[in-house]
């Protein structure tokens, strides 16, 4: 007689994930939230360290430009004034100059890469431009100081000579070394790869049927670009420019080497006196007292929030690509 074997109990069919999967999903989610955790920790810690200074200075922290601290022999703080106005104005000014210079060049080269260049050249140029985006800022800084600055000063003099009647292009007293203009040119060179690759990406998404429709209607290449590509990619290009702006604002070493930091609001871009929040931190960090370090933390917080805002807006604008246009 064959012994009766009991049939295996039917497996329970369920949509519940197994335990291994539940653990897996939890671990991955925890890892995925790391960016949220890190960003909030940055905000919390900088705000916590800078709180004392922020409370003492109040709104003056971003409206005044005086940065001084006096301590007695025992190292106690007697008097202190911390104001970031000049640094903030300088940061925005340099970043703005950089974008104004970089944007037309980047859009032109993105158009060249997508619609004019032969394939082999395009491949090569894309590799070169991507690599340039990964070059360290200290390289741009030292190259900018030793190689570019003499030329940039010469350009500044020409600009002043021919367009000196425009208020922002005045130089008085006549000092052109280490001006915001020079820093702006260095920053422009640093952000051209970023804006170029965002624009290139956006332009390459232009629907082929629209391009071909334009050609079929007899448009020249420029006619096609003007009617189809530019309207389609406009918001993407603006977003890319904002991304470059954010990068330019947070840049530290490259600006520090080519910019003369002066604690006075200066709107004259060719004059050798500028400000920059990130460079201020490097400049003052070495000999700062514990209290001044707190002020620097607060300055870091302001810079962090500023770049975060610019980046967030950039991100939103880039995502809108394709919704505009005809």
């Amino acid at each position: 007689m064959l012994s009766m074997t009991t049939a295996p109990a039917p497996r329970e069919i369920t949509t519940q994930p197994r335990r291994s999967d539940r653990i897996f999903r939890r671990v991955v989610t925890a890892g995925g939230l790391s960016s949220l955790v890190i960003l909030s920790l940055i905000t919390i810690f900088l705000a916590y360290r800078g709180f004392e200074v922020l409370r003492q200075e109040g709104l003056r922290f971003i409206t005044s430009s005086q940065w001084s601290i006096t301590t007695d022999d025992a190292g106690n703080v007697v008097e202190s004034h911390f104001g970031l106005a000049a640094m903030l104005v300088g940061t925005i000014l340099c970043a703005f100059i950089a974008v104004v210079i970089a944007l037309p060049i980047s859009v032109a080269s993105a158009l060249f890469l997508n619609f004019y260049s032969p394939q082999w050249l395009k491949k090569f140029l894309v590799a070169v431009i991507d690599m340039m985006a990964a070059f360290p800022s200290i390289l741009f800084g030292i190259w900018g100081f030793l190689v570019l600055m003499p030329s940039a000063e010469y350009w500044a003099k020409i600009l002043n000579h021919h367009l000196g009647f425009i208020p922002v292009l005045k130089i008085a007293p006549y000092v052109v070394t280490r001006s915001p203009f020079v820093a702006g040119v260095v920053l422009a060179i640093m952000i051209i790869p970023i804006i170029t690759s965002v624009s290139r990406e956006v332009f390459s998404q232009t629907p082929l049927d629209r391009i071909q429709a334009a050609y079929a209607l007899g448009a020249t290449r420029w006619g096609m670009i003007k009617a189809v590509v530019l309207p389609y990619g406009r918001s993407g290009v603006i977003g890319g420019a904002m991304l470059g702006l954010g990068r330019a604002m947070g840049e530290t070493v490259a600006v520090f080497t080519v910019l003369n930091i002066v604690f006075q609001v200066n709107w004259h871009i060719l004059l050798g006196a500028g400000g920059n929040v990130a460079s201020l931190i490097i400049l003052k960090f070495g000999e700062a007292s514990p209290y001044e370090i707190k002020a620097l933390m607060a300055a870091g917080l302001v810079l962090f929030i500023l770049t975060l805002m610019v980046n967030a807006i950039a991100d939103l604008i880039v995502k809108k690509t394709g919704k505009s246009g005809r």
Binding site: S35, L36, I38, L39, I42, L46, S137, L243, G246, R247, M249, G250, E251, T252, A278, I281, I282, G300, L303, F304, T307, L308, V310, N311, A312, D315
Partner: peptide
């Protein structure tokens, strides 16, 4: 947030 994090200045 990952996008925002890529824009955090190195000094910060």
């Amino acid at each position: 947030l990952v996008q925002a994090m890529s824009g955090v200045p190195s000094i910060v």
